[in-house]
Amino acid sequence: MLAHLRLTLICWLIYLAVTANFELSNLVVGLLIGLAIATILRPESQPLSLRRLPAVLFNLAKYTAWLGVDIIRNGIRVARIVLDPKLPIRPGIIAIQAGMKSELGVALSAHAITVTPGEQVVEIGDDGVMYVHCLDVVTSAEGAEEAQRKRRAMLERIFE
């Protein structure tokens, strides 16, 4: 029941953000759509402690900011490579150990790597090894382990 309400609320907020119309009729329509989606999806209830929520939100914001900085830095690097007349790419695939047990953790690590320009996960092995295609293997391989350690620490603080 709690999960149902939570999903309804999230859908409602997204609907209101997209329509940006706070008249009573729109509020009601949004609530009905949210209820319908929650009824169809039937979310599984999972324990949510309200006490941990602020810490989780704070860590989520920190993670998003870190990811944003990473994306901008690497975006500029890739822009440089593409604009360079000599096209100085050193493509290749490197293996990075995700070091996380849960599938969600590995998936989110892979997402963080793939969302960064210049690196993308091609394949994930059974043992949680991510095979990452890089535009510049030498530069990416240097910082890869360190970045994954940092990423893992942040993700574990959000989803433990």
């Binding site: 050193r90 490197i94 293996a95």
Partner: peptide
Amino acid sequence: VQRATRDDL
């Protein structure tokens, strides 16, 4: 993979 310098996969 064109011009690959390394392919761990």
